[in-house]
Nucleic acid binder design. Structure first.
Length: 796
RNA sequence: GCCCAAGUGGCGGAAUUGGUAUACGCGGCGGACUUAAAAUCCGCUUCCCUUACCGGAUUAUGAGUUCGAGUCUCAUCUUGGGCACCA
């Protein structure tokens, strides 16, 4: 060979890895373990994207680095295959999603192998494989048995294009996360997972996670805990009561009216005959409106029900209104309005001319100049509570409410339960059947999996049911001798991905979802890498982890120790790559152009900090190729030095690169190796220089590194260690400043570097410094910090 | 509107606890090799003044703390992200 030929080298090593399977994880190893994984991909027909390559290459870098540091490493791979793209493709072309999926997986696997990832291929999983989804159904049944999977009828997000309901987490600013269309509200009976049962723990444990703050904040906001009180209000001339939620019980004396959400069930019971038509019209209109429309129009609208509630403290009658600024899904769907101290209530009161009573005195030092003061202060107009501050009054008023049995402390969450039914074919069937009375029954575990039948027509029908509703054979089932009808909805794909990390630890188990010994050995996942799903998947997987820990199937309560959230790769112009814009870079094209996988992988790690977005730069990849070419030349073309000229820089480089690997500074790790190689080009390299280089290169460019190590006759690939004593040269450069400005550099022997007197003498003896000092009469002080720096401060 | 993060050359970006700002790469310029080109190798490349030396300025802007500030404090501007009628 006369020059670096990446494609040849890569083919050679990939064949060796295929045969020898060096990345197979051992379940019975005594060494400490590391479990690293990416968020498994959806295998689209388009194949791997450069975004996948960045994501997988980070995982590979972590996994190989740990392996080289003698950890027992599990680095699996899998495919998240249920979902709409395959189904929509099936509707368009008539091809079964089962078949398309297998073709796409095959393609993904082939491409991932071309990138040389250190994957344990014996553990591949596919969520649409009945051997896998059997256990997804089992998971559902465990939740069902404990009452954490339940049915409820209410208004749900409905995507009119995809013809299915969506979870709150899948609605972004009123738009469907997948197709981008405006979502609608539809009243339906649906299945939910009771994630709110774990709201407190999900919130409280966020702080202990080694996750990016960005994600932690998003999850905290999403859960949105607020502490307050529920208060029952009697309705005038009626036996009915309405409960409101408030975080400000201290303002109860200022509650001058009440507002209900248009969906509130009490409206029809309390409204008076004269306004019945008007109220009904308002509610119907509001419910029909999209959430976008409801939010766009901040101008308050509303209608009076004709009914009055009694303020439990003032005993005054307060009018009950309906307005769409009150949301049915939060709190109780009813509020006590305190216009003097809440901006929304204030706007409503002004518009409809409702009374405003001040009950909190604004402190004198407050710079709040809005018309209604919404912070805390001293109570006024509140009878026996006057003079108390807000915090104290809150306690006392809630105490009084509890004594009178008309209220209590209450914690409310912004997060709602997780809606998991989907009216689509290509998903995991929900293992439920209904008896004649419509009561749900679990499919017995010994009848799992409930197989997803092959059908000819994948379209959901107009009634809002999946294609399974047309499948007679599928529908009929007998449980305990009773004929029942199967559920035709399928599970949200996020259910399938809520437990896959544990399946990786025991992927072929046909007796249980995972073996306890294996899962507790490998999991929790030490490093998890992804670029998406901040509040959906990453919240759901935490929820299931806590549930299965409570059930005794796991001995840990958080599934992911360290989360790396990598940035996207955009087109050179900074825009998102997309087929329609024609700006997609195909990683296989880059490899086949002659750059090879090693260059592509190293480039994507060098392009910038892993957690920032980056724009593809077609010419910058050439620089990385040149670097690897130089590494190759050092090993194969250069005559090695006999003496050890590069001891200091070699040891410094090992230290730098090792530190960067631990702090995920992959771009700077590559830069440090480049610097080292440039130096070796100047000075010539000895065998040890090249050996160290190859070992450090391995997580980035494994094929080339193996080729180099083979040439050197290395016995192992262990990560190199450095010699503390070899980090400093015989002479050190000392920077001399005058009044903080760099004026000279002087060299002193290394042993003098800590000696302040010698440093000062060396600095003063420099010709240029002498010159400057002769122009100034007086030296005020000389500062010599620990570093190699002398700062002479003179009188100006 | 509220909360958070970040602003460094022509570009992507480096810079341990406050201690040589601009590492590394791209792009650009010059040179070697070559009949020529590609590839490869070597050198220069923050800005201003200068043939060069010397010098001066510079980490969004303005102030402050310090012997010394990209890094700390305050204010302003800009960008990105999150939340947003959540009572």
């Amino acid at each position: 060979m006369s020059h670096y030929e990446p494609l040849k080298i890569e083919e050679k090593w990939q064949a060796i890895w295929e045969k020898e399977k060096p990345f197979a994880a051992k379940d019975d190893d005594k060494r400490p373990k590391k479990f690293v994984a990416e968020m498994f991909p959806y295998p689209s027909g388009a194949g791997l994207h450069v975004g996948h390559v960045r994501n997988f290459s980070i995982v590979d870098c972590v996994a190989r680095f740990y392996a080289q540091n003698d950890f027992n490493v599990l680095r699996p791979f899998g495919y998240d295959t249920f979902g709409l793209p395959a189904e929509n493709y099936a509707i368009k072309t008539g091809t079964a999603p089962q078949d398309v999926t297998l073709v796409n997986i095959e393609n993904f696997r082939k491409q991932a192998k071309r990138l040389g990832y250190a994957i344990d291929w014996s553990r591949e999983i596919n969520t649409s494989d009945p051997k896998y989804y059997k256990w997804t159904q089992w998971c559902f049944l465990q939740l069902f048995k404990k009452g954490l999977a339940y049915q409820a009828e209410s208004y749900q997000w409905w995507c009119p294009v995809d013809q299915t309901v969506l979870a709150n987490e899948q609605v972004e600013n009123g738009h469907c996360w997948r197709c981008g269309c405006e979502v609608e509200k539809k009243k339906m009976k649906q299945w939910f997972f009771k994630i709110t049962a774990y709201a407190d723990e999900l919130l409280d444990e966020i702080d202990s996670l080694d996750w990016p703050d960005k994600i932690k904040t998003m999850q905290k906001n999403w859960i949105g805990r607020s502490e307050g009180a529920e208060v029952k209000f009697k309705i005038k001339d009626s036996k009915e009561e309405i409960t409101v939620f408030t975080t400000r019980p201290d303002t109860l004396y200022g509650a001058t009216f009440m507002v209900l959400a248009p969906e509130h069930p009490m409206i029809s019971k309390i409204m008076t005959e004269d306004v019945r038509k008007k109220v009904k019209q308002y509610c119907d209109d509001a419910i029909k409106k999209s959430e976008i429309e409801r939010q766009e129009n901040k101008e308050k609208t509303g209608v009076f029900t004709g009914a009055y509630a009694i303020n439990p403290l003032t005993k005054k009658e307060i009018p009950i209104w309906v307005s769409d600024y009150v949301l049915m899904g939060y709190g109780t769907g009813a509020i006590m309005a305190v216009p003097a101290h809440d901006e929304r209530d204030f706007a409503f009161a002004e518009k409809f001319d409702l009374p405003i009573v001040k009950v909190i005195e604004k402190p004198e030092d407050s710079d709040d100049d809005s018309k209604c003061y919404h912070d805390e202060g001293t109570l006024v107009n509140s009878e026996s509570f006057n003079g108390m501050n807000s915090a104290e009054a809150r306690e006392k008023i809630v105490e009084w409410l509890e004594k009178e049995k008309i209220g209590q402390k209450k914690v409310t969450y912004r997060m709602r339960d997780w809606l998991i039914s989907r009216q689509r074919y290509w998903g995991c069937p929900i293992p439920i059947a209904y008896d004649k009375n419509g009561n749900p029954h679990a499919i017995p575990e010994d009848q799992l999996p409930v197989m997803l039948p092959k059908v000819d027509d994948y379209k959901p029908d107009k009634s809002g049911r999946s294609a399974l509703a047309k499948c007679e054979d599928f529908l009929k089932v007998t449980i305990d001798g009773e004929e029942m009808t199967r559920e035709t909805d399928t599970l949200d794909g996020y259910a399938c991905s809520s437990w896959y990390l544990w399946r990786y630890t025991d992927p072929h188990n046909d007796k249980e979802a995972w073996g306890k010994d294996k899962v507790n050995y490998w999991a929790p996942t030490d490093v998890y890498v992804g670029a998406d799903h901040a509040v959906a998947h990453l919240l759901y997987v935490r929820f299931w982890c806590k549930f299965f820990a409570d059930e005794g199937y796991l001995n840990f309560r958080e599934p992911v120790k360290k989360l790396l959230y990598n940035g996207y790769i955009n087109a050179p112009d900074g825009k998102k790559m997309s087929k329609s814009k024609g700006n997609v870079i195909d990683p296989l094209d880059v490899i086949n152009q002659g750059y090879g996988a090693d260059t592509l992988r190293t480039y994507e790690l060098f392009i910038g900090p892993y957690d920032q977005k980056a724009n593809w730069n077609t010419s910058a990849i050439g620089g990385v190729y040149r670097f690897l070419n130089r590494c190759w030349s050092l090993a194969f073309e250069t005559k090695y030095n006999k003496e050890d000229k590069n001891k200091v820089i070699r040891n410094r480089t090992i230290k730098k690169v090792t530190d960067y690997m631990y702090s995920n500074g992959y771009n700077t790790a590559v830069a440090a190796m480049m610097e080292f190689v440039n130096e070796l080009y100047k000075e010539g390299a000895n065998k040890e220089d090249v050996d160290v280089l190859a070992r450090m290169l391995k997580p980035f460019a494994p094929h080339l590194a193996c080729e180099m190590l083979e040439k050197l006759g290395a016995k192992d690939d262990l990560w190199p260690s450095y010699d503390e004593s070899a980090l400093f040269a015989e002479e050190v450069e000392v920077v001399v400043q005058v009044n903080g400005k760099l004026r000279a550099r002087v060299n002193v022997p290394a042993e003098d570097a800590e000696d302040k007197e010698k440093l000062e003498a060396a600095a003063k003896s420099d010709e240029k410094i002498k010159q400057i000092l002769s122009d100034h009469s007086e030296i005020k002080t000389i500062v010599i910090p620990r570093t190699h720096l002398v700062n002479i401060v003179v009188k100006q």
